[in-house]
Every structure is written in C-alpha cells, then in structure tokens.
Computed example of a mutant assay.
Amino acid sequence: MGGLLGETAGRMPDRAMLAEYRAAGTKAAEQGVPLRTLVDSALREAEQLGSAAVLPALRRVVSALIEGYEDAQRQALRSEDTARREFVDDLLQGRAERLAERAEHFGLRLAESYVVAVARPVAGALDSVAGTIERDLIARFGSHNILIAVRDGLLVCVVPGTLAAATGEFSHHVRSRFEPGWRIGVGRAHRGPGGVVTSYREAGNAIDLGDRLGLRAPVLKAADLLVFPVLLRDRAAMEDLVTSVLSPLLEARGGPEPLLDTLEQVFAAQGNQTAAARRLGISTRAVTYRLERVRRLTGFSPEDPTQRFTLETAVLGARLLDWPNQLF
C-alpha cells in the first residue's frame, strides 16, 4: 500500500490519492493478486494507525482499490471477448494466421476432426444463451472440446468429430431454450482448420436446403442431404429436367402447386397414398385423382419405377430452383 493510508490520517483522501489507489487496484488485478488480499492489506494498515479518524478515509480508499481492481477485470474480459470474436471469425472464414496457436487458447486442437452445428432461432438474445449452453456442454464434455459462438445471427457449435453425443446435447439445449420454429444444421466431420470451415458451410447449407425444400425436420444433417448439392452442380441440366417434365402442370386448374405437393407427400410416404392423404388433409380419392392428373399432363406415372425416379428428381429440382416462381 506504500503507506498512502497513513498520509490520509485525520483527513479525507484527495483526488490524486484516490487515483493512486485505483491504480494500485488495477495493478494488483493485472498481477493476479486476489481482491481479498488487497483489502486485507488496507485494513492492516488502518489497524496499525490505531485511530478511529482513519475509518472514513479507509472506506474511500477501499472503494478506490476495488474500483480499480474491477476496472482491470472488466477490461480483461472485454479484451478476451474481442480476441474470441476475432478468432471465431478467422476460424470460420479460413484465415490461418496463427490459427492453431490461438485455437489452443480457446480449447480446440485443430489437428483433430471437427463437426460444426449451427442453430437458427426465430428470435431471442443469442449472446446470453450462448454462454449458458457453452457452460453446460463444457461441464459434460470438458473445456478442451467445445466452442460456442454467435455469428451472423446463428449460434455456432464446434465439437470434435469423436464426440458424437455433443451435437445431440447441443440440439437438446437449443430445443429447451429457443422458441418453436428454430432449426439446426449439422455439418460432417472434417480435419484441420479448413475442415472446420467446410463443416460450418455444410451446416448452413443444410438449413438453407431445409427451407427451400420445405423439410419438416428441425435438425438437418449434411450427410443426409448430399444428393442435393449434386443435383445443383449442373444447374442447366436440372432446369432442363424441371422444364421438360413439369411444365405441363402449369396448365392444371389451380396451378401446379397442389399437384407438386401431392407428389412430394406420396414420395415421402414411399408411395402410400393413404398416408400422403393424411399429411395433405385430403381424401385418398383426391390423391388418386391428382396423381392421375399428373400422369395425363406429363406422361409420367409415379407408379412406374423409372418414371417415378424422373418425377421425384424433377420435383426436388423444382423446390431447389423455386419453380414455378422462378421460370427459366
């Protein structure tokens, strides 16, 4: 304490003295001195003075010490948060400057394979939820395995590929904390910093595909959706297929949408028209009528194995390309 408290005996400390105590508190925090030790030091000095007159000054001195100490802690937290955000941005964009070294500080060993899951909420404050979910996951799986961050309106979860249960636990926490309407995309396991970027993109693309295809499942895995990027890789061929097969449906009374919906549900139900009717909220007879209408207009029957495959691929392509809203 440098005897500063003795200088205040009988009078209140001035601004300069309080500034020195705040600086002492800041220095103690930076050096890792416990706050209790700092306050005990001030109290011991007051005891040595042995005067009741020093107590009002002591209150101000201790307050200044604590203020400086807490300021240093807040600054350290802000610096850590900034470093964390910069690291997450660099990691998910593949900027490799000292990435492996920085990753160790945040609990990741980038030589391993990692899986990235992203959650998109309907609404809510993601930052506070992120901290809570991260603490819960770390408590179960360990601090050197989990990274939770907020980026571009998504809650991002990075976990080792060997921790298969971690993405399931992440989904559980999202389900319990987010309002209905949330959706999660899960990438595949890939190795190294570039693998994290790839898995992150796959997770985001899974959510996008779910939206475009009208998929009902709230959790979508990139591994289950591999056919769709393949279909989109040759866009011109997909547009030609959709136009050639489905354009006659534009002539249907009520437009093509009811017929497309019916085909989708029949395919999803493995050809079970009763189940498809239940999902659509119509009679089985209406489903049968619509399928016959498709056959007459397009010349393709969903009951013929070869023609069914062509029809199903065309319907998937229509959803991916937003047809007929986007006509080619």
Rank of each mutant, 00 (worst) to 15 (best):
R95D: 00
V39I: 10
E179S: 13
A117Y: 08
R308D: 04
Q273E: 15
G281N: 11
F106A: 03
G107F: 05
T26K: 00
G254N: 13
V242D: 08
T167C: 00
P258N: 11
A206Q: 07
R15S: 15
N325C: 11
P56S: 12
L108S: 06
E134N: 09
E257Y: 09
A269W: 01
L55Q: 13
E251W: 05
R293Q: 13
D71H: 04
M1A: 14
R44F: 10
L226A: 15
E264K: 01
Y69W: 06
Q265C: 00
G194M: 05
E70Q: 00
R59F: 11
R85Q: 05
R44D: 11
W323I: 13
T298V: 07
H172L: 04
Q73R: 15
G181H: 10
R188I: 02
V54A: 12
A53Q: 14
F170P: 09
W323D: 06
G185R: 00
A103N: 05
T8M: 03
E257T: 03
A29P: 02
Q273T: 11
Y21W: 13
T243C: 01
S301E: 02
L137M: 15
A276H: 04
A277W: 04
Y289H: 08
H173M: 05
R95A: 09
R233W: 06
A203P: 06
S283K: 05
S176L: 05
P13H: 07
P193W: 06
G204M: 06
F141K: 07
L213I: 05
P324T: 08
P34N: 11
G210E: 01
P248F: 02
G6A: 15
D81C: 02
L5Y: 14
V116Y: 09
A149Q: 05
L259C: 09
P258K: 13
S143C: 02
L316Q: 08
I133F: 12
F300R: 10
P324Q: 09
P56F: 13
E104D: 12
A9R: 14
G50Y: 00
L316V: 04
A28I: 03
P34L: 13
V33N: 08
S113M: 07
L259F: 07
L92V: 09
L5G: 15
L147F: 01
P121M: 05
T306S: 04
T274F: 01
E179P: 01
E20V: 03
R308L: 03
A149V: 01
Y114I: 00
V294C: 06
R290E: 07
L321Y: 01
A9G: 10
D211T: 10
G2T: 11
D234W: 12
Y200P: 02
R285S: 14
E30W: 02
L43R: 14
V115Q: 07
R151Q: 13
E179F: 06
T8P: 08
G271I: 12
R285E: 14
E47K: 09
E292C: 00
V115G: 00
V116Q: 12
A164D: 06
L5D: 14
A149P: 00
D90I: 15
G94D: 03
R212Y: 00
G68T: 06
S113G: 09
V186A: 11
T310F: 02
A23F: 11
F106W: 04
T167N: 00
L321I: 06
L226H: 03
L92N: 02
Q270V: 05
D14I: 11
G317Y: 00
L110G: 03
R293D: 11
A42H: 07
D152A: 13
L291E: 15
A24S: 10
Y114C: 02
T288D: 14
R11T: 08
G161M: 07
F228A: 03
A223K: 12
